[in-house]
């Protein structure tokens, strides 16, 4: 039994079957990639996992509890963090302030009226935020406004904000979309490092095969809303069904 279990999930948008009988069992500590051509239902599936969409039928169990019907902030408090396709950070705040917010959220829960406490007196939180910034080599950028960072650094910051919450599961939505090859390789390295040093389960949705095969321990191929195959990267590479669905007839 894995940390995340998706059973018989169906989702329709009008006449379109976006997800049809999706079953997934994601093992604790693995890196699981979900791939598939455009329109295969990858994003819909991700949105179901983080509570943005409620499926028509089926269950999604995380760590023994259902995530369905919960708000995104409740799901985050259960231990699921999400990295977006375009980095979502607090653009007007400094890098350091960006790091403080997840630290407070982790400690204080969804809301706390700490209106008259001073940040300077929160030694533990500050230490934690600084430690994390050092870990991702951004400590020298702590005073910069987050919106002025390079795209790669924004991604790095967003990931650090997720990691500082020590999530049990990290969801990554095309983490290298629109990146140059060098940045992509840096991100792969960073993710591999995170996985090895922290033992976090990761679910990655990705187009770029280079990224998928460099990271994933297991791969699920989605096509037209349903899982086609699930296997190790080595077996997926040569799988005829995958080639057909993903690369079209020309490659098959």
């Amino acid at each position: 039994m894995g940390i995340l279990e998706v059973s018989n999930v169906n989702k329709r948008f009008g006449g379109l079957q976006a997800l049809g009988d999706v079953n997934l069992d994601i093992a604790q500590g693995t890196v699981h990639a979900i791939i598939g051509p455009n329109g295969a239902g990858k994003s819909t599936l991700l949105n179901v996992l983080i509570g943005k969409l409620v499926p028509d039928t089926g269950t999604v169990m995380f760590d023994g509890k259902s995530v369905l019907g919960r708000k995104p902030y409740e799901i985050n408090q259960m231990g699921i963090s999400r990295v977006f396709q375009t980095p979502e950070i607090f653009g007007d705040l400094t890098v350091f302030e960006n790091m403080l917010i997840p630290c407070f959220a982790k400690r204080d829960g969804t809301f706390r009226l700490h209106a008259l406490e001073s940040i300077a007196s929160e030694k533990g939180i500050i230490e934690k935020a600084e430690q994390m910034l050092s870990d991702v080599a951004m400590i020298d950028k702590r005073g910069m406004t987050a919106s002025s960072l390079s795209r790669g650094d924004k991604r790095r910051l967003e990931m650090a904000m997720c990691l500082v919450q020590e999530p049990k599961l990290l969801l990554l939505d095309e983490p290298t979309a629109g990146m140059a090859r060098a940045d992509t390789n840096n991100t792969i390295e960073l993710l591999n490092h995170i996985h090895e040093s922290r033992d976090i389960t990761m679910v990655i949705i990705e187009h770029d095969m280079h990224v998928v095969f460099s990271l994933a321990k297991r791969i699920t191929v989605l096509a037209q809303g349903s899982p086609l195959v699930e296997d190790t990267p080595e077996n997926i590479k040569g799988h005829p069904k995958v080639k057909e669905a993903y690369l079209g007839e020309a490659a098959a």
Partner: peptide, 18 residues
């Protein structure tokens, strides 16, 4: 800080558990 975070990015705020 939380109030200023709301102003810049509510999406990130909710996905940070707030």
């Amino acid at each position: 800080i939380m109030l200023r975070a709301i102003k810049t990015n509510q999406t990130r705020m909710t996905y940070t558990g707030l």
